[in-house]
């Protein structure tokens, strides 16, 4: 069996600010693997341990994203692919999902694609389902448990709003996993040494089946950011300063006045 896990490098901090002119100020370029993806990698490795599988990872991003692929090596994945090309720049969800769906096809023929539930920088949770659509395969989102691995299908427990559903999906399919499905293992130093020379396969536009530039990056992105701006401040407000005791009393009086006490 072949499994591919889609991972992403995200900023290590959420301290992003905008100046008065609406420009981004971002201090440092600290970055890490999207925390939700650690669960996706762990899920794949657990399946590998139980049933035997080849586990690959893919990410799309600039060459610096190699760091998250190396991290995945340290957790125990087999091969890593970096989907990178200037032509992919400025991709929104649709163009990202399309590029990834094309990239995944260049890694072999995975029966199972696993994604984290969402990323911490975009928080959209859309790329997984969109990829599945482009690949023409079923998907199940928010898996919180693997119930059974069958010959031609996987049975998972899915966390819906009011129900827990046990769902069987035939391969090939895409599953997005919840945080907490398994405890992600820590990257091992031993594996770091063992994998330090392992090659990462680069995939660029010219390697893909569909090389039409119009499908990728900004050209393939239907959405456009018109402007960015700091959130509105609440103007109708009171700010209180002073000693802790006095502030507590003041709060008590106000909450009483508003009938919460």
């Amino acid at each position: 069996m072949e499994i591919i896990v889609c991972i992403k490098q995200v900023p290590g901090t959420d301290e992003v600010k905008v100046d008065e002119r609406g420009n981004l100020i971002r201090d440092g370029v600290d970055s890490k693997m999207n925390p939700y993806d650690l669960y996706a990698v762990e899920t794949a490795l657990k399946i590998k341990e139980e049933k035997g599988a080849k586990v690959n990872v893919i990410t799309m991003g600039p060459p610096q994203s190699e760091a998250v692929l190396r991290e995945a090596f340290m957790m125990g994945v087999d091969d890593a692919y970096l989907l990178t090309d200037r032509k992919f720049a400025g991709a929104d969800v649709l163009a990202t999902a399309y590029a990834l769906s094309q990239g995944v096809q260049k890694t072999g023929s995975p029966q199972l694609i696993i994604c984290g539930k969402q990323t911490t920088d975009g928080d959209t949770a859309q790329v997984g389902p969109e990829m599945a659509e482009y690949l023409g395969i079923p998907h199940v989102a928010n898996a919180k448990k693997i119930i059974e691995l069958r010959e031609n299908s996987i049975v998972v427990e899915v966390d819906m709003a009011n129900t827990l559903e046990v769902v069987e999906v035939q391969y090939p399919c895409l599953v997005t996993v919840e945080k907490g499905i398994f405890q992600p293992r820590l990257p091992s130093y031993k594996r770091k040494l063992a994998t330090k020379d392992r090659t990462i396969t680069y995939i660029s536009l010219k390697d893909l089946n569909d090389q039409d530039e119009k499908q990728y990056g900004i050209n393939g992105s239907p959405t456009q950011v018109e402007r960015i701006f700091p959130p509105d401040a609440n103007t109708d407000q009171e700010i209180w300063t002073g000693k802790g005791d006095d502030l507590g009393n003041k709060m008590f009086d106000k909450l009483t006045e508003l009938k919460f006490i």
Partner: peptide
């Protein structure tokens, strides 16, 4: 957080909350 607060209390939670609790 003070940008959206109607009442912004600039103080140490370890002082303000016990004081409020005591009053209640």
């Amino acid at each position: 957080i003070f940008d959206v607060a109607h009442y912004g209390i600039v103080g140490d939670i370890y002082e303000v909350i016990p004081s409020l609790l005591e009053k209640i």
